[in-house]
Design a protein around this nucleic acid. Structure first.
Lengths: 248, 248
DNA sequence: CGTATGCTTGAATCACGTCAACTGATGTGG
DNA sequence: CCACATCAGTTGACGTGATTCAAGCATACG
């Protein structure tokens, strides 16, 4: 299930959301990352209801926060995490987990033990507040997801969803790309957008024919970024991306 | 727009979510509440994009966090706040506001200036973490709203929504009631559940005829709480209510 | 090989949205 | 006081976006 690697082999990237952590704080943080784990796709990393004594820094892959549906046949994704994201950092103050954490694609994480983190943060109000901010950005994204899945129709909804993935992956890799190998299935997209896989399939076809983007074999290609943003009414402000005008 | 009251007239209730704040911390916090404001229903308290130097403690009324829709004709509610909730506490670390804050019903708030709060929190890691937790409970509720509006059908969705209101108002007033005067309109419910006002009206009729609850003139009556919870697949764990088994 | 998983498409159905008309309550100004 | 406007709620008729059920087709895998 999980593959433990040697401490010295951890590749510590300061890209994506963790870039909000100032360099001199980052130096205090990295020694805490002593364990590395790898999960194959479609595996549960943490289950809801459980108590966590650690959080994860996502090094590679895509991880979803997932809430099982009442019927228990499928589940709903309420958030996606990309490389450079702190996964379950909110479990540090809250301990109890209210949702599942699932590796959507093969994923690699670094483990941060809460007691070690506590020792560092207890003496460092400033960094403490930065990490607080990181969890609040998650909250901002949650709000956007609630809005998107409540107020937008299928076509615009998926367009907005891909715009977000594009923007976040761009921030995570620090290069603008026209195509990404993300390896998520249409069923995953359905879980994230609150639609059926069948309808997702049809919307994807519409997006392709409209010249926005195309996705096949887990390979997302942005054909016309401006058009995609327009169709999805996309405004990345809610992402608080590092480097954008809105500071943390 | 806002009515400023005298400092000594503020009625400080330690009910609802602020009950998570320990009594000895509460004593440090209350001196910060020096100003009281009252807003009539349907008024904007803070607009998105603006920078906040204060947060609000909701003393009475119902306040919504609202994101304008692309068409700009209506807006979507992504959260509701009740008495005892910290409104916009997340603006303390984040400063920038990504959504509007609107008084849904006539509301009274107490103002907490961020610089005063900072002085208290800088020397108090423990309370700092409690307030961090409070914002994370908001995030948990956001996740639930995303799930609810993505995965549940109209009938169950509204049932779940009312179950939440019931549970939170109960926690806010510390008495189990069969009816509440909440004063929200069917259009408000529509904005919160991602439905049209017309369809909300029909669902409310179904809920009434099913013997769950009835709402008229902003007056919510719980007819059969167990039935309501069943219909809405309601499990209050995500609310982290004070006094429940899941501690902060 | 056979079986599982993901993608694609069609046809039928349904939940929900849209448009519109009507009611009742409240409020305002002449 | 009445005429008029406004807003919340209610209901009907109709249209459509989305789900459901189903079949077919790939590719991957033990």
């Amino acid at each position: 299930m999980s593959d433990t690697g040697h401490p010295h082999r951890i590749q510590l990237i300061r890209q994506g959301m963790v870039k909000h952590v100032a360099p001199h704080h980052w130096e205090e943080l990295t020694p805490l990352l002593q364990e590395q784990r790898t999960y194959p796709s479609n595996t549960v990393i943490s289950t809801r209801g459980s108590t966590l004594d650690h959080s994860l820094l996502l090094l590679d892959g895509i991880v979803a926060r997932s809430i099982p549906r009442p019927d228990n046949e499928r589940s709903t994704f309420v958030a996606l995490q990309f490389r450079g994201d702190f996964v379950d950092l909110h479990a540090f103050p809250l301990k109890q987990l209210d949702h599942d954490v699932v590796a959507v694609t093969p994923s690699t994480v670094a483990v941060v033990q809460h007691d070690a983190l506590k020792k560092v943060l207890d003496g460092n109000i400033e960094m403490s507040r930065t990490l607080w901010s990181l969890t609040l950005v998650d909250a901002s994204i949650h709000r956007h997801w609630a809005m998107r899945n409540s107020a937008m129709r299928g076509f615009a909804r998926v367009a907005n969803f891909f715009s977000e993935i594009d923007a976040r992956l761009c921030a995570a890799t620090e290069t603008y790309q026209d195509s990404y190998t993300i390896g998520i299935t249409q069923t995953d997209i359905a879980d994230a957008t609150g639609m059926t896989p069948v309808h997702v399939n049809r919307v994807l076809k519409d997006l392709r024919e409209d010249g926005c983007c195309s996705i096949s074999n887990g390979h997302l290609q942005i054909i016309d970024r401006d058009r995609l943003h327009m169709r999805g009414d996309f405004d990345p402000a809610y992402l608080y991306l590092p480097g954008s005008e809105a500071p943390l």
